[in-house]
């Protein structure tokens, strides 16, 4: 058979079929709810990044006369908090810390948890049993209690809060990674790869990762909202972010005394937490159904 030049020409001519990720994207675009949620989530991220340019006032600069001004006050479109700081600016700036506390622990836990879970799932046997039972011990604690216990032991502060949330999220992500990997490992293309004589590392890299990272990542994105709410809870208890920093959970905490005076104002940080967590949840739901290849 004439190889070389002919084959190279054929290779160049290989019909580029619709790749997996492009088909996922097409299906995602058809899901209107997920697209809306994605836009809201993207808007929140942009808001956090460009906070200094968007915010009308300094979030730390208070005016005692304006304390607890209602929504719609002149110069304070969303009112002022208990120290007379502009609520709108604080909500915009608050997105920075809140999103940071939502996304970063999940990303770190994703990297660690996925590695543990994939290793346990692929190796199976007693490695799997030992790893998963150890993680089950952590998993048995209610996540709120565990987060409070760890950051309580380490003391208040953003980094300690981050660390405690990361520890909380490793077991559930590892569990999902383990179960997805275990189901993929039983498929015949993995057997075929084993029959090719490739090393375990190579099989995991070339055949397992591509098929498990997607579902694990989708699960991890659904934890972003949980992480934000837990972080808000830690701040509320005085364990995470400390005043005067703007963070939604902390704002909810300090404004709760004003709930009978200005109920709408006091609810605003809660509205932001709700909006962010629901948009991230719906985004990950949409991603999951878009990635679900049924032939």
């Amino acid at each position: 058979m004439a190889v070389t030049a002919d084959a190279v020409a054929r290779l160049a001519a290989i019909e580029k079929s619709q790749g997996y990720w492009r088909s996922v994207w097409t299906r995602f675009l058809r899901d209107k709810v997920a697209v809306c949620a994605g836009c809201v989530a993207a808007g929140l991220v942009l808001m956090a990044i460009f906070a200094p340019w968007i915010a009308p006032a300094d979030p730390l600069d208070g005016s005692m006369i304006k304390r607890l001004s209602p929504i719609g006050t002149e110069g304070y479109p969303l009112g002022a908090d208990e120290l007379g700081r502009d609520m709108l600016s604080r909500l915009i700036y608050g997105a920075r810390l809140s999103l940071f506390m939502g996304v970063v622990p999940v990303l770190i836990a994703f990297a660690i948890g996925a590695a543990i879970g994939i290793a346990a799932g692929y190796l199976g046997g007693w490695v799997n049993t030992i790893t998963m039972r150890v993680l089950d011990v952590l998993y048995a604690f209610p996540s709120v209690l565990l987060a409070i216990a760890i950051s309580g032991a380490l003391g208040a502060g953003i980094l300690n809060g981050l660390l405690s949330l990361t520890v909380v999220f490793i077991p559930p992500i590892a569990r999902v990674a383990e179960s997805v990997t275990t189901s993929v490992r039983k498929l015949e293309y993995i057997e075929a790869a084993q029959a090719s004589g490739a090393s375990s590392l190579r099989i995991v890299r070339d055949h397992v990762l591509g098929n498990v990272l997607g579902p694990i990542f989708v699960y991890a994105t659904s934890l972003i909202s949980v992480s934000m709410i837990l972080a808000a809870g830690l701040s509320f208890l005085g364990l995470g972010v400390s005043p005067p920093n703007a963070e939604w959970g902390l704002m909810l905490n300090t404004l709760r005394n004003a709930i009978y005076v200005q109920p709408w104002l006091a609810a605003l940080p809660g509205v932001m937490i709700f909006l962010t967590s629901i948009s991230f949840n719906m985004l990950s739901d949409g991603l999951r159904s878009a990635m679900d290849v049924k032939q």
Binding site: Y20, L187, E188, Y189, E191, A192, A193, A195, H207, G210, N211, V293
Partner: peptide, 15 residues
Amino acid sequence: QMVFQDSFASLNPRM
């Protein structure tokens, strides 16, 4: 070498 029964499951869906 071996050829398996399930032609779909024996091919990596991402390759």
